[in-house]
Design a protein around this nucleic acid. Structure first.
Length: 576
RNA sequence: CGGGACGUGGCGCAGCUUGGUAGCGCGCAGCGUUCGGGACGCUGAGGUCGUGGGUUCAAGUCCCACCGUCCCGACCA
């Protein structure tokens, strides 16, 4: 393409209020334009990169035997009601009525539709299957943000494995795990796979792929010593051994005005050190109140409470009024001693503890000498605490590290939730009927694109890996008004095209500085600069975007040098 | 949904306190000079001041409502 005839609206100023670097650079570089909150136009440059990412994904899906299909995005709501996700997904699901008044939704992932298709499978002989599609998904996000990182309309590759048994599911899951890792590597992303919560998707196990970045929204926990790594929503930590001594007597004592863990600990250090207190929280899960107990120096990870209780997403802290009505005291004096009529979820760190201190459910009174097993009727034990960087690894006891990451992919072992809901059963070799065992696997195309920019840019702009760059080489003509210079550049341009290189000719009537700055902002990996000054001595310049080094090459060898650089880069990132 | 901010040519902003001819930078068009790191001069085009209502002789400016966008918190690829 010729730059002079291509719509590449680069900007010198940052867009207003934009926080994420990737957003600023993609807008300034003329890759994307915003239409509305969470809705973006892909301009020519953006679309070229997007298609390259999609092609990588498609190749790797085909490599593991995926069969590409294309499902509708417009679904009758009944289908979602049948799987139970109509309510479960809440307001994130776009819902509306068509002209006949039929409740309709826009797909946000499509387990339902694929499960319906799977009803046409009858025999184990037809399994396993890997089905996938790549198209637009809709999510009515409460708060779209950070440019392409969190939007309401995006392209997702979603695939689904269908198996007769659990080993089959494991195998399909592993294939995806490996394929995903290859996809991200090929895009130039270093993504790590971490244990994750399955959330509203359901299922037994899930793994998330995250790219380390401060623009990310997920907190990831990794062990400095072994290979343990997990999303904080799922991560657990070692329990430090604590010597509580002999179980003491339960004792009520006055604590006027002491409403916080800290205040109580300072006033009564002998019985109420933070790790000796029981923190009592009141939550409503699907409308039902429940008490959550944690050690005084721990915090609740709400997702873990959801996972432990099997509740959907309907969770909220109780209001102070509700708490007073339920327990008869204000927050600050709450406890679970003697409470019989409420469900009580307790964190593992409290199991079998003695001589603990907790609120007495009467303002300004606490209990000391609490033995958890003796004095509190716990309905369920679970790992509920938020992992902090002070905690230690469950596997090896090593120190844990916390960092932020962008979730670029997520794979789930679903099980039979959807096949049972839609009646997708096959017979085994003995003629016995089994629900098909499903897995589902998602990757966000535009989010991956933003993640690449987040992890590969400098103060001049984007530094695209060759594999996803909108163009591999730019031929920059200095003095496009000089016929000899232009002709030399056009020769190089034509030769590169003939060598199957993605090349753009910057033949604009701009000054050199503008062209250099634009090509760097846009992030094209290699540049050949053709100018009258170099041509006098028979040379052009070859520049790598990733470094700053510029070398003179002879006019005759310029094409070969660029081709070799591109091919080397392609091979390096294709990774075997 | 809670909290905060903002909406003025394509982009970035000033003007609002104290109502009275709508401005600046970038970009854009024409001409000229320049041109290997975001040039300069001259000329010019381009604006329902988010929308609707109200107050006033007069509203970008004051009041009310609505819409939209961004940022901080609870959700996901």
């Amino acid at each position: 393409m010729r730059w002079s005839q291509t719509f590449i609206p680069t900007l010198r100023d940052d867009p207003a209020d934009a926080e994420a670097v990737s957003h600023r650079l993609l807008v300034r570089g003329g890759f994307i334009r915003q239409l509305a909150a969470g809705s973006y136009t892909m301009l020519t440059l953006g679309q070229r990169t997007r298609l390259k990412i999609a092609a990588i994904i498609r190749e790797e899906m085909e490599a593991i035997g995926g069969q590409e299909m294309m499902l509708p995005t417009l679904h009758p709501a009944d289908i979602w009601k049948q799987s139970g996700r109509y309510d479960l997904m809440g307001d994130n699901l776009f819902k509306f009525k068509d002209r006949k008044g039929v409740d309709t939704v826009l797909g946000m992932t499509e387990e339902e539709i694929f499960a319906m298709l799977a009803t046409e499978l009858f025999s184990y002989r037809q399994l396993p299957q890997i089905w996938y599609q790549m198209h637009t998904k809709f999510r009515d996000e409460p708060r779209p943000k950070s440019g392409l990182l969190r939007v309401r309309e995006f392209t997702m590759k979603d695939s689904y494995t269908l198996d007769i048994d659990l080993p089959g599911l494991d195998s399909g899951f592993d294939k995806h795990r490996i394929a995903y890792q290859r996809m991200f590597t090929r895009m130039g992303l270093s993504a790590v796979d971490v244990e994750a919560s399955s959330g509203a998707m359901g299922g037994s196990e899930s793994v998330e792929f995250v790219v380390r970045s401060d623009a990310g929204e997920d907190w990831i926990v990794t062990c400095a010593n072994c290979d343990y790594r997990a999303n904080r929503e799922k991560a657990t930590s070692a329990l430090d051994p604590i010597d509580d001594g002999e179980a003491g007597e339960l004792e009520r004592f006055p604590t006027p005005g002491l409403r916080t863990i800290k205040a109580l600990a300072e006033a009564h250090p002998e019985v109420a050190a933070p790790d000796r207190q029981i923190k009592s929280l009141v939550y409503f899960l699907e409308g039902e109140p429940l008490i959550v107990l944690l050690r005084g120096d721990h915090d609740l990870e709400e997702q873990k409470l959801l996972d432990a209780s099997g509740a959907g997403e309907d969770i909220r802290p109780a209001t102070p009024e509700e708490i007073r009505e339920l327990l008869g005291a204000d927050p600050g004096s709450l406890g679970a001693v003697g409470v019989k009529d409420l469900r009580i979820f307790a964190d593992e760190a409290l199991r079998s503890r003695h001589n603990m201190t907790t609120g007495a459910n009467e303002d300004d009174w606490h209990f000391s000498g609490v033995s958890v097993d003796r004095d509190i009727t716990v309905s369920a034990w679970a790992d509920l605490r938020t992992v902090t960087s002070r905690a230690n690894c469950v596997n090896c006891g090593g120190g844990l590290e916390l960092w932020k990451g962008i979730e670029v992919g997520h794979i789930f072992k679903l099980g039979t939730k959807y096949s049972e809901a839609f009646g997708a059963y096959v017979q085994d070799e003995e003629g016995k009927s089994h629900p098909v065992i499903m897995g589902s696997y998602g990757i966000g195309v535009e989010r991956a694109m933003a993640a690449v920019v987040e992890s590969s840019h400098d103060d001049k702009g984007i530094v695209w890996p060759v594999s996803v760059a909108p163009f591999e080489v730019v031929v920059t003509v200095l003095r496009a008004d000089d016929p000899a210079t232009l002709a030399a550049a056009e020769d190089i341009y034509a030769s590169l095209q003939a060598s199957e290189i993605d090349v753009i000719l910057d033949d604009r009537a701009e000054r050199p500085g503008v062209k250099f700055a634009d090509s760097e902002l846009v992030g094209i990996p290699f540049r050949l600069t053709v100018g009258p000054r170099g041509l006098e001595s028979g040379t052009v310049e070859f520049t790598r975007r990733s470094g700053v080094e510029t070398v003179d090459v002879s006019l005759e060898s310029a094409v070969a040098a660029a081709v070799e650089a591109v091919e080397t880069a392609r091979a390096a990132i294709a990774g075997g």
